[in-house]
């Protein structure tokens, strides 16, 4: 058999027995000590700020065309140059943050709700339902993300909502697997038995007694998977399966720039850098959070 790994469970700051401060403060302190997490968080907040305040930051409209100024190299008025339609690449990169973050966070949120529920219910109820759900998860996980993502987008058609849905569908099995193991372990705990014995409904047990115990880990992983989701969004947009034009997304900007890579590199290179920075920020944040959550894995 595959060597079984024991599941990790959230142990918020167990190793700092300082009673003068609240647990919340303790977590915050540990967080601030973790440089990776802090840098990641700062960048992520900056990107979010850019997304929210893009109309204030962007010097030009991201969609207004001026074809006579196409492919201007980066200089004074257009620091990132202009694209095929003469649109300002800098402004489009700024506005592109909106779609990336919106899709990244909302698809992970949706996937988290769906997947965690699936995993918890499967582990808690057992039986046929368990087999059904976990088999389905196995099937979904047996495809590379890009393959399944392409299929779902082809079936659903392009568009913002479908994009979010597709990525959420890709994310759900991960959360299901994540929630499944700990729930299985917790189900056997005495206090869960006790709760059941005093007549708590299944839903109550799941929400009040099991969820809080696994939530920490789910939250940590959702940060990491937001990075994955943002990258997936870029992949799908790059293949032309994302949000409809003229809405700028980093992925579709790179796509349109690809054909002119040799003469107008700036159209692709700047949005790519934006993806890199954003994904990196979420990866750093997630990585740091994981270290804090599980000091044993601390490296």
């Amino acid at each position: 058999m595959r060597p079984r790994k024991t599941r990790r469970i959230w142990k918020g700051g167990e190793n700092t027995p300082d009673s003068s401060i609240t647990p919340r403060q303790r977590i915050l302190r540990t967080f601030l000590k973790n440089r990776t997490a802090v840098i990641g968080a700062v960048i992520a907040v900056c990107v979010a700020g850019v997304a929210i305040f893009s109309p204030l930051i962007a010097p030009y409209s991201p969609v207004r065309q001026n074809v006579r100024y196409r492919f201007q190299p980066p200089q004074g008025a257009h620091i990132f140059g202009t694209d095929f339609y003469g649109r300002d690449v800098f402004s489009r990169v700024i506005y592109g943050a909106r779609i990336s973050l919106l899709v990244g966070t909302s698809s992970v949120l949706l996937g988290m709700v769906l997947g965690t529920a699936m995993g918890m219910v499967a582990a808690y109820r057992g039986g046929r339902l368990e087999t059904l759900i976990m088999r389905a998860v196995d099937v979904m996980m047996s495809f590379p993300d890009e393959v399944l993502g392409i299929m779902i987008m082809v079936a659903l058609g392009s568009g913002l909502f479908n994009l979010i849905l597709a990525i959420a569908i890709l994310m759900a099995p991960r959360f299901a697997r994540l929630a499944y193991g700990p729930t299985l372990a917790l189900r056997e705990r005495d206090y869960v038995d006790a709760a059941r014995a005093v007549g708590c409904s299944d839903i109550r047990v799941l929400f009040r007694h099991i969820l809080p115990n696994i939530f920490g880990e789910v939250l940590v992983m959702s940060t990491l998977w937001t990075a994955t989701a943002i990258r997936l969004e870029a992949n799908l947009s790059f293949l032309g399966l994302g949000v409809s034009p003229p809405t700028p997304t980093w992925g579709n900007m790179i796509r349109t720039g690809l054909d002119h890579l040799t003469d107008a590199w700036w159209v692709s290179v700047f949005p790519g850098a934006a993806i890199l920075v954003t994904v990196l920020a979420f990866n750093m944040l997630g990585d740091g959070l994981r270290d804090i959550a599980d000091p044993k894995l601390r490296t």
Binding site: Q65, Y85, P246
Partner: peptide, 10 residues
């Protein structure tokens, strides 16, 4: 797609 995007902008 290219002419349509221009028509859209116009």
């Amino acid at each position: 797609l290219i002419p349509m995007q221009n028509i859209q902008a116009q």
